[in-house]
Lab assay of single mutants.
Amino acid sequence: ELSWTAEAEKMLGKVPFFVRKKVRKNTDNYAREIGEPVVTADVFRKAKEHLG
């Protein structure tokens, strides 16, 4: 699991709890794919757009 900024964690907190774990995993995987060592708010937004 990658490191997350406080802002990205806050955004994740707005995701319904029953899918939060999956969203975190998918976002981590997306960040790795694009070469990001940390999940930022920008990476979170891009993952959301990319993953739907």
Rank of each mutant, 00 (worst) to 15 (best):
V43F: 05
L51P: 06
R20P: 01
K14D: 13
H50D: 06
R24G: 02
E9Q: 09
G52S: 13
I34Y: 09
V39D: 01
R24K: 11
H50N: 09
K46I: 05
D28H: 04
V23L: 09
V23P: 00
W4R: 00
K21A: 15
T27E: 00
L51W: 15
F17H: 13
E9H: 06
K10N: 09
E9W: 12
P37L: 13
Y30H: 03
V39I: 09
G35M: 06
K48W: 15
K22C: 15
V38Q: 08
T40M: 01
P16F: 05
L2Y: 05
W4V: 01
L2I: 13
S3Q: 13
M11H: 04
P16D: 06
A47Q: 03
I34G: 04
K48F: 14
K10D: 11
D28F: 02
R32Y: 06
M11D: 04
K21S: 15
V39L: 01
P16Y: 05
T5E: 05
M11W: 05
G13V: 08
K21L: 13
R45H: 08
A31D: 01
V15F: 12
A41Y: 05
V43I: 12
T5M: 03
T5K: 02
M11S: 04
V15A: 05
F17T: 09
V23I: 10
N26I: 15
F17P: 11
W4M: 01
A47E: 02
F18M: 09
E49R: 13
V19K: 12
L2A: 05
D42N: 06
T40W: 01
K14H: 08
D28W: 02
K46D: 08
E33C: 15
V19G: 08
P37T: 14
E9T: 09
K14Y: 08
K48Y: 14
T27P: 00
A8E: 00
N29G: 08
K46N: 07
A47Y: 14
F18W: 15
F44D: 01
A31S: 06
K22L: 14
A41P: 07
K14A: 08
M11G: 03
N29L: 12
K46L: 07
F44N: 01
V39E: 00
P37I: 11
F17Y: 12
R45C: 08
R32K: 11
L2R: 06
G52M: 14
R20Q: 08
P16C: 08
N29E: 13
M11Q: 06
L12S: 01
R20E: 03
K46V: 05
V23Y: 07
N29K: 11
Y30D: 00
K14V: 06
E7M: 06
L2E: 03
T5W: 01
H50P: 04
W4H: 01
V38R: 07
E33M: 15
M11C: 07
V43N: 02
Y30A: 02
F18Y: 14
F44R: 02
K46C: 08
T27N: 02
E49K: 14
V15M: 11
T27C: 09
T40Y: 01
L2P: 08
I34L: 11
E36C: 08
E7K: 07
L2W: 04
A6M: 10
N26Y: 15
N29I: 10
V39Y: 00
F44S: 02
E33P: 00
T40E: 01
P16I: 04
Y30N: 01
E9L: 15
V15I: 11
R32G: 04
I34R: 09
R20G: 02
F18G: 12
T5Q: 03
G52Y: 09
A47C: 06
M11A: 07
H50L: 10
T5C: 04
Y30T: 02
L2S: 05
L2G: 04
V43K: 01
V43H: 02
K25G: 07
W4Y: 01
S3K: 15
N26G: 09
K25H: 11
E7H: 05
A41T: 06
I34K: 08
D42E: 13
K14L: 13
T27V: 15
R24V: 03
T27W: 04
G52H: 13
E1G: 13
K21F: 09
G35C: 06
R20H: 03
K22A: 13
P37R: 10
L12W: 03
L2T: 07
K48Q: 15
G35V: 03
H50R: 11
R24Y: 03
N29H: 10
K25I: 14
K25Y: 13
K14N: 09
N29C: 10
G13C: 13
